[in-house]
Write a protein that binds this DNA or RNA. Structure first.
Length: 437
RNA sequence: GGAGAGAUGGCCGAGUGGUCGAAGGCGCCUGCCUCGAAAGCAGGUGUACCCUCCGGGUACCGGGGGUUCGAAUCCCUCUCUCUCCGCCA
């Protein structure tokens, strides 16, 4: 596949860009839809600089005068005491200015954190998912000589999905897998990790699934989407909504050597989402659960490579669908449908026969330097050069629960059994889930 | 959970309240030497921000707060790491 390289965005959403080139930011952000209020940002930025100047001047002055005190207290004690008094007063003044500065910076920070990333120029204009652009369609939806059953009918019929008992234990949007179903879930996880680790050259990592508040902020889940996160109370830790959070944060506050890039990680975690605001949506089946498994791909790369890597990473996720013989299509998300942190996203949508439509099963995004700035993840191009922000990317490879549902629906047979794709059979240990007698 | 020790620059490791962004060593870079290399010698080697930006300044010695004219050095607090005991998948 030949890849044409779209031009790069300029460095984005750092303070200087927002305060110095507010118009550019406003214009780019407009692709996402209604604009957040931006005017106070430039004003705050100006105020910040003034205060910094004042504070620094004052400190400089105090520093120099302070050096005299030692000498004076020997040579001229009364004079020394006088200077000391003056400096004490300046200290008060300094404290006030510093407090003002801290307030301004906090406000600035708060507002900056609520600004989404700037969409890349290859992102289609549009308001919602109806405006997403079809990039390609791979595989043909299967033809059935019978009415295909939805996985929420098929699963219980095969004895592999148990919705009642999931709800009994934990409430709605939790499901129990049994027998071949549980085995299939585990097989999919191993199959996906092996594929990416062995054939696509990702390093396998295993990470904590409860994370600090700050880490959710770096990747962009917070502060804006706190309602959608599960968290513990004491101590406060967030259950990861995606492995993206712990894995991207692996290199937080680091300055990487250029030779270390690109860093490529594949990671399995359970994912936890409140799904606040999606009441009544996808209430049947395992499409939208509070807890689901996912194998995630994460890359940290040089800025000039990130759009090429986005194509590559998307292809890696697609390989899973191809090997599982699942028909899918690739959508380029429009500005209005783009996630908060993403500059550009391809969604992979798998065909779901019973619903007669494609459903999202992977989301592959380039975040450019947005997450790297929030997490201070940098690299040094060569010895002695200034640290630069890396670009971060990630993609599901794939959402395991949805993959399981897609396999049940797409590979169901007339006799009620489900065929296991050849690539997966070594992992399940069986090549078919037989109908229950 | 109980008792104790510690957290300093890429690493190791000093540091009496003032001239410490921080000795010394290692590593790394540049120059000299050499046919080349090693050794040796000389110099350099953090990050961020601000400004009148080939230069000047401010901050940062785990985080936050305090004392002081002045704190890496004193006090409080939090976090983390290590050792021992207990408990435990």
């Amino acid at each position: 596949m030949s890849i044409s390289l779209p031009p790069r965005n300029p460095s984005m959403l750092d303070l200087r860009l927002v305060t110095d080139q507010l118009d550019l930011v406003r214009e780019k952000l407009a692709r996402r839809g209604p604009l957040p209020p931006l005017d106070s940002l430039a004003r705050l930025g100006e105020r910040r600089r003034t205060l910094i100047r004042q504070v620094q001047d004052l400190r400089h002055h105090k520093k120099q005068a302070g050096d005299d005190v030692k000498r004076l207290s020997r040579e001229d004690p009364p004079r020394a005491e006088q200077v000391r008094r003056q400096l004490r007063q300046l200290g008060q003044q300094q404290k006030q200015l510093e407090q003002q500065l801290a307030e301004v910076e906090q406000q600035l920070q708060q507002q900056l954190l609520l600004l989404p990333n700037l969409p890349h120029e290859t992102v289609p204009a549009g308001r919602d998912e109806a405006d997403n652009r079809l990039e390609r369609q791979v595989g043909q939806p299967p033809h059935f000589d019978f009415a295909p059953r939805a996985h929420w009918d098929l699963g219980p019929a095969l004895g592999v999905l148990d919705f009642e008992r999931g709800a009994k234990i934990s409430g709605s949007r939790f499901t129990v897998l049994r027998g071949a179903g549980a085995r299939l879930e585990r097989a999919l996880i191993n199959f996906m990790i092996d594929l990416h680790a062995r054939q696509h050259d990702y390093q396998e990592v295993w990470v904590p699934q409860l994370v600090l508040r700050e880490r959710m902020q770096a990747t962009g889940q917070l502060p804006k989407f706190e309602d959608d996160a599960f968290k513990t109370v004491d101590p406060e830790l967030f259950l990861v909504p995606t492995a993206e959070v712990p894995v991207t944060n692996l290199h937080r506050d680091e300055i990487l050597a250029a030779e270390e890039l690109p860093l490529r990680y594949v990671c399995y975690t359970a994912c936890f989402r409140r799904e606040a605001g999606s009441h009544g949506k996808d209430t049947r089946g395992i499409i939208r659960q509070h807890q689901f498994d996912k194998v995630e791909l994460v890359q940290l790369v040089r800025p000039e490579e990130s759009y090429q890597v986005l194509e590559q990473l998307t292809a890696h996720a697609e390989a899973v669908l191809q090997q599982l013989e699942l028909p899918y299509r690739v959508m380029n998300l429009c500005g209005g449908d783009l996630g908060f942190s993403a500059a550009k996203t391809y969604d992979l949508e798998v065909w779901m026969p019973a619903q007669d439509r494609y459903r999202e099963i992977s989301s592959c995004s380039n975040f450019e330097d947005f997450q790297a700035r929030r997490g201070r993840i940098r690299f040094r191009r060569e010895k002695g050069s200034k640290p630069e922000l890396v670009h971060t990317l990630n993609g599901s490879g794939l959402a395991v629960g949805r993959t399981l549902a897609a396999i049940l629906e797409n590979h169901q047979q007339a006799d009620g059994s489900v065929r296991i794709p050849a690539a997966l059979a070594p992992y399940t240990g069986f090549d078919s889930i037989p109908p229950r007698q």
